[in-house]
Each structure stands twice: as C-alpha cells, then as structure tokens.
Design a protein around this nucleic acid. Structure first.
Lengths: 182, 182
DNA sequence: GTCTATATAATGATAGAC
DNA sequence: GTCTATCATTATATAGAC
C-alpha cells in the first residue's frame, strides 16, 4: 500500500476484508477486531467508515449479491449451466468464497436476514427473472434449491452429496432447473 | 413442578428449553444463561448435566431430528404429502418450531454443523431412504430442496415465496419431489 | 487519518457454600 | 441438587491524543 493515510483505500480494504470474513464465518461468527486486523487497521476504523458492524455487513451484502457465480446469462442453456456451475463450485475441494455462503452462514441473525432479503430481492431475483423469463415463484423455488444444495453439500457436508457421482448430480439438477426456469 | 430437587426432571426441563432456544435462535444466537432461565434453573446446571453448551446442543439435535414434521410414511402419496406439509408449515403466520429451523439457524457454526451432519445422516436420510425407495443422492437433493425452501420462505422471508399462491407452490413442489422420490 | 485506551456488556465455564 | 459468586475472555462501540 502506497499511502498509509488514504481514506478511500482504507475503506476499500475494510470492505474486502468484510466480504471474506462474513462469507467464511457468517455475521455472528466474526468480530470487527478480526475484520479490521485482516485489513491492516484497528477496529475503530470499521465504525468510523461504516457506522457499525451492521453497516459494514449491509455494504458487504450489496457488493456480494451483485456477483454472478452460478446464474449465467445465456437463456438457451440456462438449466444445464446452472446445474454444472452449482456442482462444480460446491465440490468438497473447491473451497469457494461464494455469495451463497454469505447468505447461508448469516441468515440465523434476524437483522442480517432482513438485509439479505432486501439484497436478494433487489439483485439476484431480479436478474434471474430477466434471464429466465420464468414466473416469480418458480425463480424463487430455483433459488431455494440452489441455497439448499449449497447448504447440504458444503456447509453441512452431507456425505450423500459429497461422495455422489458428479455427473449424475448435474443431470438430476438440470432436470429440476429445466422445469423451474424454462 | 412437584419436586424442586429432581435430577431427571431438571435435566428434561433444560433439554426442552434447549430445543426451543436453539431452534428459535440457532447455536450462536442463544446463551446458556437464557436456556437455563427458561428451564427455571441457573446456568451452572446446564454444564452439570450436559458438560457444556456443545454437549447440550448434541442432545438437542438428537431428539429434534428424530421428529417427523414433513416426511410422511405413506409411499403412494409421498410427493404430494411432502409438498403440502412443506407449504403449510412454512406459511408466514405458521410460527412453527421445526427441526429444519434448528439446522438452518445453527449451520453457520462449524462444530454445530458437524453435529447436525451426523444427526441428519443417521436419522433423517435413513428414514427418507426407507420410505421412498429412491437413490441416496436423490434423497439428499430432496432434503436440500426442503431446507432451501424453508430458508428462503421462513428465515430469509423472500416475498416471492411468502406472497405466492400456496396451491401453485404446492403443485410445483410436488412435481419436483415426484421426480426425486419415486 | 489513525491510533491507544477504555467503557460497558455479554459470553462459557468453574469453585465452593449450603 | 442447586445456589451465589466469580474468573477469564470476548464483544461492540466510543473518547480523546497525535
């Protein structure tokens, strides 16, 4: 880092550390001290730039849910692309840092859940509606399936999913997404 | 309570308070003091009877995941019964205290996640395999769908699911479970 | 712009009295 | 069998120095 006193750079460093920490450990699983240390500053600056832990989390959600990690933008192969990306990114050795993990690991906190709901509806559902042309409930069910699969395979670590044949998993998921999104 | 000094009754009261508290707030969202107070005792007795907060959680998971709240036992109407129970129990006004909520709200904690994985594989997946006759991966995907739907409709509160027509939701879910479990 | 130091509250767990 | 009292740690957030 060139400038040790650069408000914009410091703010950005805290935000990036926040994305990493909240995604890895969830809202309740990490403290502002830890986030600040990862950004190379003290905890005081987190509150200075973001008001509070909750304020930082809100910005983290905003930048995270605008990323596209599973939902593609090609309507013709949508079901297959989602299924393949989902199986690939939830593989046991993948160790991804995905926005869906941020949702799954922070949802237990009521305030975090409300922030997540707003971000998901504003960005993720909106994007999925535009790309797929499916109905709003069907898009929401598809998102539920993605979240649930991510939860069971990565966060819980169900051996029925971690040890399953990946091609078979992909085929079955593609079949389900085909019903929901076409 | 008849006896103010009854080890078995006290232990049972703490366990029941633990089920309620962990299901409502998740592993990290509740303290042993709060659980003890709900059981009418002091925090010290939680550790006395269960060793630690983690020990209590392990027993809570064990009694919770043996409950059957969504998965029925009638193979012929399985897909419909699951879909209907899922939509009914996740209704906005339902305010249920369901084992799936215990999973969703506690999964962020790594130790809790491992305890949950063991309980799910030993009881829930095993039961679902016996009832449905489906393959192990298909059963696991069905469980993922149930968890994801519960997460998005109840914990996150996605309006796309809370405001959707319940009959339409049920029909669509039944279609998906029919593929997975028959 | 960033720090040290601190206020205040809550956490999980334990010692020892009765 | 259950309590009070307490330890050690951690949490978020703030005051004031430089």
């Amino acid at each position: 880092m060139v400038h040790r006193r650069d408000a914009a750079a410091t703010r950005e460093a805290i935000l990036r550390a926040g994305v990493e920490a909240f995604t890895r450990a969830g809202y309740d699983g990490v403290g502002v001290r830890e986030i600040a240390a990862a950004a190379g500053v003290t905890a005081m600056l987190v509150n200075r730039y973001f008001g509070s832990k909750e304020g930082l989390f809100a910005e983290v959600v905003d930048v995270s849910v605008t990323e596209r990690t599973v939902l593609g933008s090609e309507p013709r192969t949508l079901a297959h692309d989602i299924a393949a990306a989902l199986v690939r990114r939830t593989a046991p050795a993948a160790d991804t840092l995905d926005p869906f993990l941020l949702v799954l690991r922070s949802a237990a906190n009521p305030r975090a859940a409300e922030i997540l709901r707003a971000g998901i509806e504003k960005h993720v559902e909106k994007h999925a509606l535009e790309v797929s042309g499916a109905s709003r409930p069907d898009v929401a069910i598809a998102l539920a399936l993605i979240n649930g699969f991510w939860l069971m395979r990565t966060v819980i670590g169900s051996t029925a999913l971690t040890e399953a044949d990946e091609a078979a998993l992909t085929d079955r998921l593609e079949q389900l997404f085909h019903i929901l999104l076409t």
